[in-house]
Amino acid sequence: MLKVYDIDVQSRLLLGTARYPSPSILAEAVRRSKTEIVTVSLRRETSGGKSGGAFFELIRDLGVRVLPNTAGCHSVKEAVLTAKMARDVFRTDWIKLEVIGHHDTLQPDVFGLVEAARILTGEGFKVFPYTTDDLVVAERLLEAGCRVLMPWCAPIGSAMGPVNPTALKSFRAHFPDVPLIVDAGIGRPSHAAEVMERGYDAVLLNTAVAGAGDPAAMAEAFALAIAAGRLAHKAVPLEPRDMAVPSTPVIGKAVFS
């Protein structure tokens, strides 16, 4: 069981809600993935309509916990404002904090991220920071009051999978007791299985599911891969070697070569 901010969840898959072909397909993907947490981005005009956001009604009707996010925010002020709006709309103190530093790569502005995290935790938010795999930044985020870390494994939406396994390994080793959720860069279920095998606690996905030919089937495929990766981690996988090792014992053979 995964525990984030004192909440127990069974599913180790967190699913984004953007860019599905339709809300019906999103709902089907949520159902088949068995996810218990979905992230939703809040744009200012989204909440400006007369019906108070029919899309948000649909999200609330999914019956899962909502983790609002500050996707697309490029400054501390904007992120803090969006987090407060999200708290009102979804009545939750959870916030997935994104402060984007670079328009093209969507790389987090880690300085702004730490500052915004400090402000928001000070106001009672439970912050899930989207960060890089930089250890020092991660330490600062913990100092700022974050109890979960969400490092990328590749740029958002890039579908490249883990581009720096060494960094992911040392990140996990450095923070053995902090829930670590890989956020961004996962393209395929095998990528998700890989980070889970490496001991990460959960995976957050959006584009890899929403952009698939059959999003609902892909959501289920990810759920299976994440469960398999988690099971493999607990089962303690082998470490790679640079030479062959016979899988059949050779004791008793007449001649050793």
């Binding site: 744009r43 005009e45 989204t46 909440s47 400006g48 309509g49 007369k50 019906s51 956001g53 029919a54 899309f55």
Partner: peptide, 11 residues
């Protein structure tokens, strides 16, 4: 394509 029924001018 924005999930909203806000009909205000383009942003």
């Amino acid at each position: 394509m924005i999930e909203s029924d806000d009909a205000g001018p383009i942003t």
